[in-house]
Design a binder for these strands. Structure first.
Length: 430
RNA sequence: UCCGCAGUAGCUCAGUGGUAGAGCAAUCGGCUGUUAACCGAUCGGUCGCAAGUUCGAAUCUUGCCUGCGGAGCCA
């Protein structure tokens, strides 16, 4: 019976064959342990010389690290295995023999591992992170599909900068200039006017010279946009969504979280609602906690965000930022024109901002003034303004950075481990 | 772009002016429950690159390159 490691539990006491790679092995004169992996999981194969016979035992001792093979064996429950099952090997067939696998069982440095990212992905730790990433993506589709959202794919090649501030990747589009998308938001607003509630999931590109554990040049964003949703409705979706993905990972990735040594008690607390503080309150907090030099109108840096996040055990919304700090499309608070109806969601444990969102300006006059004030090219935003001309409605949306979310939930230090092939300031290989 | 740290065997590192070292990996041998297994042996070097100081430089000086951590900016 051909099966996979994940499904081996259905075949206790039976003989099965698994296509696998040898992750590692240990052996003595009369017993050998093969650490096998097949992508679905990890299992230990046991070869006892007296039972397996001379020839099979010799073959088992000779298999090299990361060789591919078909392993046949008897499935047995075993309390000594963290996985719960072991395979008593009765047959081995080498598919392809590997020689001098570079990633040895001992420790390695970051540069070396990143140069061998295509092989590093095979490790237990990377396997666990990728499974958690996948679970977050799965739970994202589940959450939005259950609530009647339609997935819409905004373009990746664009002709203009949605937000003037960040640096964009420049390319050619036949005879025109083009840029790689740094946000699909404006297009998602158009989609929300067509389909009501929409979300996107795709790559974004930022040509920023950022070198921190929270930054990637190419990263993936989930951007929901909802017609008829105000600021308050928007925050509710965000906290329910984030709570949903955390609870889904807790439920479906127990082995992976354990493998990563994640403190799950911290994740269990992540349930809606999340605490909220305004920019003004955050400023007051910072003044009382060693950041006296921050003035009203200054943006918060990473140390400020971390200090604020540390006084909560859930993600915290920072709302109502000064208008001058935020992009042109955010709706002003009608009772206080100098702040906008926006919120950043800061993850606990120093993982930084994972969501930025706001209610969008739906008034034609105000939006065209803002475009002028920000010195944006009016022609490029003509279509965007037209959304306010033909049946404009209040609407809101947000963007969640996938890799920062994966890093936080998995408890890994650096976002470079949360995407299969990270693009960093000094890395385009492999 | 700025600040700080690092670059020595395939990998992880020690070596601070006087013969280039250890552990892991690889190879050979030993070991019946290993969990980064263990024990013995063998193999393994352009000390990031260039110039300088010195009788003598991995070690001191200068420049450059590469990487790491952080800041700014952002998700």
């Amino acid at each position: 019976m051909k099966t996979t490691i994940a499904e081996v539990g259905q075949f206790v006491g039976q003989e099965v064959t698994i296509g696998a790679w040898l992750a590692n092995k240990r052996s003595s004169g009369k017993i050998a342990f093969l650490q096998l992996r097949d992508g679905t999981g990890f299992i230990q194969g046991v070869v006892v010389k007296s039972e397996a016979g001379e020839e099979l035992f010799k073959a088992a001792k000779a298999v090299t690290q990361e060789s591919s093979l078909y392993v046949t064996g008897l499935v047995q429950e075993d309390s000594r295995s963290p996985f719960g099952y072991e395979l008593t090997v009765t047959g081995l067939e080498i598919i392809s023999e590997a020689a001098d696998y570079p990633i040895t069982p001992k420790e390695h440095g970051t540069e070396f591992l990143m140069d061998h990212r295509h092989l590093w992905l095979r490790s237990r730790r990377q396997h666990a992170v990728m499974k958690i990433r996948n679970e977050i993506i799965r739970a994202t589709y589940e959450f939005f599909n259950e609530r009647g959202f339609v997935k819409v794919d905004p373009p990746i090649l664009t002709g203009s900068a949605p937000e003037g501030t960040s640096e964009l990747f420049h390319t050619r589009y036949f005879d025109e200039d083009a840029y790689l998308s740094q946000s699909g938001q404006l297009y998602m607003e158009a989609a929300a006017m067509a389909l009501g509630k929409v979300f996107s999931f795709g790559p974004t590109f930022r040509a920023e010279k950022s070198k921190t554990r929270r930054h990637l040049i190419e990263f993936w964003m989930i951007e929901p946009e909802m017609a008829f949703y105000n600021f308050e409705d928007n925050l509710k979706v965000q906290e329910e969504y984030v709570a949903h993905i955390v609870q889904s990972v807790l439920k479906n990735c127990q082995l992976e979280l354990e493998r990563l040594g994640r403190d799950t008690s911290k994740l269990e607390q992540i349930k809606a609602p999340f605490p909220r503080i305004t920019y003004d309150e955050a400023l007051e907090f910072l003044h009382k906690n060693g950041f006296e030099d921050v003035k009203w109108g200054d943006d918060f840096g990473a140390p400020h965000e971390t200090a604020i996040a540390q006084s909560y055990d859930k993600p915290v919304f920072i709302t109502h930022y000064p208008t001058s700090l935020k992009p042109f499309y955010m709706q002003p608070d009608e009772s206080r024109e100098e702040v906008v109806l926006c919120a950043d969601l800061i993850a606990p444990e120093g993982y930084g901002e994972i969501i930025g969102g706001s209610e969008r300006i739906h008034d034609f006059q105000l939006l065209s003034e803002r475009i002028k004030e920000h010195n944006l090219e009016p022609e490029a935003y003509e279509w965007y303004l037209e959304l306010r001309k033909y049946g404009s409605v209040p609407h809101s949306g947000f963007g969640l950075g996938l890799e920062r979310t994966v890093a936080w939930i998995s408890g890994v230090e650096h976002v470079r481990e949360t995407i299969p092939f990270p693009r960093l300031l000094n890395r385009l290989y492999p």
